[in-house]
Design a protein around this nucleic acid. Structure first.
Length: 799
DNA sequence: AGCACTTGTCATCTC
DNA sequence: TGGAGATGACAAGTG
């Protein structure tokens, strides 16, 4: 089922992409949203899948037993589940995976184009990707707000910026919407915005004048490309990490910039944001398909209106490079599908590594084509945006969004950078490095705390805090386990299990004896037939005549005798089920009064076994104690047997001991016995009964101990299982947080103001409201303000 | 010979 | 009250 689901989902997405490439608009979203519940379920999973219960069930299944913890299929199972979860995660963010995928397609096409026409750009992008790992870049990323400023400065001052993808956005935007504006107009708008800001409204318009200037200057030329590359380099170095805030010409204050379309307080879903971005982006001929639908044509768009909010991808597309070769794309898709198929068997890590993020893994696996998301190596692919990376992934691909690093606790800051650089090769990278997801997960105030972040890989404090908590929880759990009786080995085993997902339950060492096994087997062997009835008969037979002493002894021995040599394994096994009904004390323990009853068959088989035929008085007993040598002579005869033999007791000790009182009395009445004989018989009976009682008692004790041990082990096992489940939950939560962060950054990266500039993460953050809408807000803006202005901003956006 | 363990036995208690 | 069972304690047997 999982396979089916996976392939269906991936296939659907890919099919959508194909259709879009052909020029057919396919809006999967609508299908997902309502019309086709089954389809939605297939892709997003049943509603119940959103609940933790699913996970529990899964765990139960794993633990239990649907899939063996060490099953080879386990990895695949988890991988599949992870991918599905990722898809669902997208849904939760209101960012349809399909849209993201579509963007990917654009990227690819762009990549292809870039290869041919604008090699310089691709190189830059590639460099950007490489920078991800560049230690030098890190400091820059972590740089304070200063970085953003530099970024903006570059944008404004350097006309070449237009060549860069983001620049392209600006360029397009300016042409579309701002071409008409004079500098005065823009200044006027700025002033108005400032006023708006003073009133508490977020500012959405920024330095139009500068932007316009840039847009005019921007023209994709090799030379410009060069400049862009240089700029990008500077970004990577952290110069551009944060967009500089526009400075108020009058006061000199920095003015918060906002996306024109997406006001700082605009309320809109991420999906809407993406749509707006795309919609506002006139893609020339392709503009016919403004929606998030797959729009391969975007590639052909050379110029985007200045108003565009930054479809990051579109701007990057080289104008001259119109459309990708459909055949080529088809091949790419096929290659991706192959990869997906392969990925089924891959570990999650592998799948993640295949992501576009700039890791080389995908490239290698996807020789197929330009489609490859990642690739820092090939110039063509270097420009791939996160979206692109994710596209293939719906199947395999979320991984791009959820980098390989997702699994690692530390994650991300780095991840962020690579994505940013790779995605837009533009300001985006620098701008969003340090976006924090906290807005989504955490209250606004938390977000405000992380304003300083630039493009650095550093996780938002709250987020990292949560992660740390998770780690601490795990550690504490292990400690707890150690404290509460887990041996070091067990703890390590637990840890290993957690790491490996093997789901092996801790099987504590087995209790010394498994009562059920040995006992039951023995007890079953010991049938009730061995009880008094049987041997009373034998006894009767054996002692039919007093004269046959020898025979009688043998018989008696066989009948009644306790057999010292009797296997200890089963010595406690003579349980007559009928005899133990219910001892209240312990369910598992029943009284077995036949504890020492020999099997009649056993006796017959071992006639040589000791018999107590001798008749002895109590005095004899005393005497026998004084003379152990005599006992040694009759090794196998018990003292009472010897005494009975010595006293010429006419019946077996077994009879004496095991006959019911009434029968015993009748037996005594039948025979004319001396007082000594009667006394001995009574002593024999007493001791025999006491002996069996003692044996039963000891058995019960042993059983009790065993049961207690078993209970302890069961409890420990349960505890270990629960701990393991908890750790799984923690891990899952951590992964979800990481994914969320990735999505947040991705979305934030996509956002552009009217001039196509990215929002500096240090100044803006996305707030996730209860109604599902996403607001981009200047940091520090109160929640109340958020609620006030979203609609307005949204309107602006949707223009 | 000493030790650990098992088994038998006694005394005592409870039912 | 006595029988039977349960159990602690002790001793003997055994390896």
């Amino acid at each position: 089922m999982l396979y089916l689901k996976k392939y269906f989902t991936e296939g659907l997405i890919q099919f959508t992409i194909l259709l879009s490439l052909i020029g057919v608009r396919v809006d999967v979203d609508t299908y997902l949203s309502n019309q086709l519940p089954p389809l939605r379920e297939i892709i997003l999973g049943p509603s119940s899948a959103y609940t933790q219960t699913q996970f529990h069930n899964l765990r139960n299944t794993l633990d239990g037993y649907g899939i063996h913890p060490k099953s080879v299929d386990l990895d695949h199972f988890f991988t599949t589940r992870r991918l599905l979860n990722q898809v669902r995660q997208l849904d939760r963010l209101s960012v349809p995976s399909t849209e993201l995928n579509t963007w990917l397609v654009h990227r690819d096409s762009e990549t292809v184009v870039s290869t041919s026409s604008q090699s310089s750009i691709t190189l830059d992008n590639g460099a950007g990707l490489e920078d991800v790992n560049n230690p030098d870049a890190t400091p820059a990323m972590r740089g304070g707000s200063g970085a953003p400023e530099s970024t903006y400065n570059l944008n404004t001052a350097d006309s070449s910026l237009g060549a860069v993808a983001p620049e392209g956005n600006q360029e397009q935007g300016s042409r579309d919407g701002n071409d008409d504006l004079t500098k005065e107009d823009i200044d006027l708008i700025d002033i108005l915005w400032r006023q708006d800001i003073d009133l508490g409204a977020g500012r959405e318009v920024f330095n139009y004048s500068n932007r316009q200037k840039e847009s005019e200057e921007e023209k994709p030329s090799p030379h410009e490309n060069k400049d862009r590359n240089e700029e990008q380099e500077s970004w990577r170095n952290g110069v551009n990490l944060q967009g500089a805030q526009p400075v108020d010409g009058e006061t000199g204050e920095s003015i918060p910039e906002q996306l024109p379309g997406i006001g700082s307080q605009t309320s809109l879903s991420l999906q809407e944001c993406l749509r707006l971005l795309e919609a506002t982006f006139p893609f020339g001929e392709e503009s016919e398909f403004p929606a998030p639908v797959v729009t391969p044509e975007i590639v052909s768009n050379e110029e985007a209106p200045s108003t565009s909010q930054g479809l990051p991808l579109a701007p990057q597309l080289p104008p001259a490079e119109p459309q990708l070769d459909l055949e080529q794309q088809w091949q790419d898709i096929m290659a991706i599908m192959e990869l997906q198929a392969m990925e089924v068997n891959n570990t999650s890590l592998q799948s993640n590594s295949s992501s576009v993020d700039g890791t080389s893994g995908t490239t290698e696996s996807n020789p197929g084509g330009n489609f490859e998301l990642s690739t820092g190596s090939t110039p063509v692919n270097q420009d791939v945006s996160l979206h692109q990376a994710s596209l293939p992934s719906c199947s395999q691909d979320f991984p791009p969004m959820f980098n390989p690093q997702l699994d690692s606790i530390s994650i991300t800051p780095r991840t962020t950078m690579p994505r940013l650089s790779s995605s837009n090769s533009s300001n985006i990278n620098s701008t969003f490095g340090a976006t924090n997801l906290t807005g989504i997960f955490l209250p606004p105030h938390i977000n405000s705390s992380s304003n300083n972040i630039t493009s650095t890989p550093i996780l938002p404090d709250p987020f990292s805090t949560l992660l740390e908590e998770s780690m601490l929880d795990e550690i504490s759990l292990l400690d707890l386990a150690m404290e509460e009786g887990f041996s070091q080995a067990q703890a390590s085993q637990l840890e290993d299990e957690l790491d490996s997902d093997s789901g092996l339950s801790l099987d504590s060492s087995h209790s010394p004896a498994s009562p059920s096994s040995s006992e039951t087997s023995c007890s079953s062997a010991a049938s009730s037939s061995s009880t008094s009835a049987t041997f009373s008969e034998e006894g009767a037979v054996g002692y039919s005549t007093d004269s046959e002493v020898a025979t009688a002894e043998t018989e008696e021995g066989a009948v009644g005798g306790y057999q010292p040599g009797y296997s200890k394994l089963c010595r406690m096994s003579y349980q007559d089920p009928s005899q133990f009904h219910g001892l209240p004390q312990l369910d598992g323990i029943s009284h077995n009064h036949t504890y020492n009853l020999p099997l009649s068959s056993a006796f017959s088989e071992h006639p040589e076994l000791p018999i107590s035929t001798g008749k002895k008085t109590v005095r004899d007993k005393q005497h026998s104690k004084l003379q152990p040598h005599q006992d040694l002579l009759d090794k196998h005869a018990s003292r009472d047997e010897r005494r009975a033999r010595a006293m010429k007791i006419p019946f077996s000790n077994e009879k004496i001991i095991n006959l019911p009182v009434e029968e015993f009395n009748e037996l005594l009445a039948k025979h004319h016995l001396s007082e000594a004989q009667l006394a001995l018989i009574r002593d024999i009976r007493r001791r025999g009964k006491n002996k069996m009682a003692a044996q039963n008692c000891r058995k019960r004790k042993l059983d009790t101990i065993i049961n207690l041990e078993q209970g302890v082990q069961d409890l420990r096992r349960d505890k270990a299982r629960l701990l393991k489940e908890k750790m799984e939950f923690i891990r899952s939560l951590r992964q979800m947080k990481q994914k969320m962060q990735s999505l947040y950054q991705e979305v934030f990266t996509q956002l552009r103001d009217e001039e196509g500039r990215p929002y500096p993460p240090s100044e803006y953050s996305l707030q996730y409201s209860a109604d599902g809408s996403v607001l981009i807000m200047p940091r520090g803006v109160t929640t109340a303000e958020q609620n006030r202005k979203p609609e307005k901003k949204q309107k602006d956006k949707k223009k």
